[in-house]
């Protein structure tokens, strides 16, 4: 840790907001998708975890432009791990809503 490692807080926040924006939309759309596919129990959560990780990978590759260290302090943890739990309620909400709409009996 040398002395010229000063960070710009505004840019850190801007990057986090952008990642959050992508994860918000991804989790809602994955909820709609698992509702349409009428997935149940563990399958829906599997779709969520795999789908969000793929989307994060896309973010990592496209937005990171090969030098992700420049944009996040701890890239792997911030991009892949920290958003998984926080976005789950939105996913479950859309999942339940669309599931109920699609699979009406009779």
């Amino acid at each position: 840790m040398n002395t010229d490692e000063a960070y710009s807080n505004a840019n850190i926040k801007s990057n986090k907001d952008k990642l959050q924006h992508v994860q918000d939309i991804t989790s809602l759309v994955l909820g709609i998708a698992s509702g349409i596919l009428t997935l149940e129990s563990i399958h829906g959560f599997l779709l969520y975890v795999i789908g969000l990780t793929l989307a994060n990978g896309l973010f990592y590759v496209i937005c990171g432009e090969g030098k992700i260290d420049k944009y996040f302090k701890s890239p792997i943890q911030e991009v892949f791990v920290s958003g998984i739990v926080g976005n789950m309620p939105g996913f479950v909400m859309m999942w339940c809503l669309v599931y109920a709409l699609v699979s009406t009996s009779a």
Binding site: D4, E5, A6, Y7, S8, A10, N11, I12, S14, N15, K18, I62, C63, G64, E65, K70, Y71, F72, K73
Partner: peptide
């Protein structure tokens, strides 16, 4: 950088 903003103060300015 096209998508994100660099966080180190030297790059950011």
């Amino acid at each position: 950088s096209q998508y994100l903003k660099p966080i180190r103060a030297t790059d950011a300015s």
